[in-house]
Amino acid sequence: NTKMVRFKKGDSVGLRLAGGNDVGIFVAGIQEGTSAEQEGLQEGDQILKVNTQDFRGLVREDAVLYLLEIPKGEMVTILAQSRADVYRDILACGR
């Protein structure tokens, strides 16, 4: 149940992230009207890879910085997997 989305970065990627470290990086929110939303990313999706950067094992701050450093107008390719069950557990633990 993995999906790959590809879009051109606007002012931002339009994602709020949660998790990090051993639990993985998850989409915690999506800005309305962004390409990330239009391409089908959803809250609870685990981000496995962005462009050439493996997101598994990253701390959340490093994942956020990586997304911020992608220049506006560059193509962004995100490999994600729907993991809403794991995401709910992360929220319940306050991570």
Rank of each mutant, 00 (worst) to 15 (best):
V5F: 10
Q46V: 07
S12N: 13
A92G: 14
P71H: 09
S82W: 09
M75L: 09
I25A: 05
L68A: 15
G24W: 01
C93F: 14
M75I: 09
R83S: 07
Q42P: 04
G10E: 09
S35F: 11
G40A: 05
L17I: 08
P71C: 01
L58R: 03
L67V: 03
F55M: 04
G73M: 08
I70A: 03
A18R: 08
E32V: 08
I90R: 13
L15V: 13
I25E: 05
M75K: 05
D85K: 10
R83P: 08
A63Y: 00
Q53A: 03
I90S: 13
E74W: 04
E43M: 07
E61N: 08
L68N: 15
E32S: 14
A36I: 10
V13E: 08
E39I: 15
L58K: 07
T2Q: 10
A63E: 00
E43R: 08
L15M: 11
K72W: 02
R6H: 09
A92C: 13
K49R: 13
Q53P: 03
R56L: 06
V64P: 02
I90A: 11
R6N: 07
R56A: 09
F7A: 01
R88Y: 11
K9H: 01
V76D: 04
G94E: 15
G20W: 05
G44W: 03
N1H: 07
T2R: 06
V5P: 03
L79I: 14
N1L: 08
S82L: 03
L15Y: 04
G44L: 03
N1Y: 13
S12Q: 10
T2P: 02
Q42S: 11
L68C: 14
A28W: 04
R6D: 03
I70S: 01
L17C: 02
V27W: 06
N51K: 03
L68H: 15
D54L: 05
V76C: 05
E32T: 12
R16L: 10
S12A: 08
E69Q: 14
T34H: 15
A92Q: 12
Q53S: 06
A18Y: 09
N21T: 14
R60H: 13
G40F: 10
F7S: 02
S12H: 13
T77R: 04
T77V: 06
F7Q: 07
Y87K: 11
A92T: 13
E37K: 10
L65I: 09
G57A: 07
V76E: 01
F7R: 00
T52R: 10
N51E: 08
G57R: 08
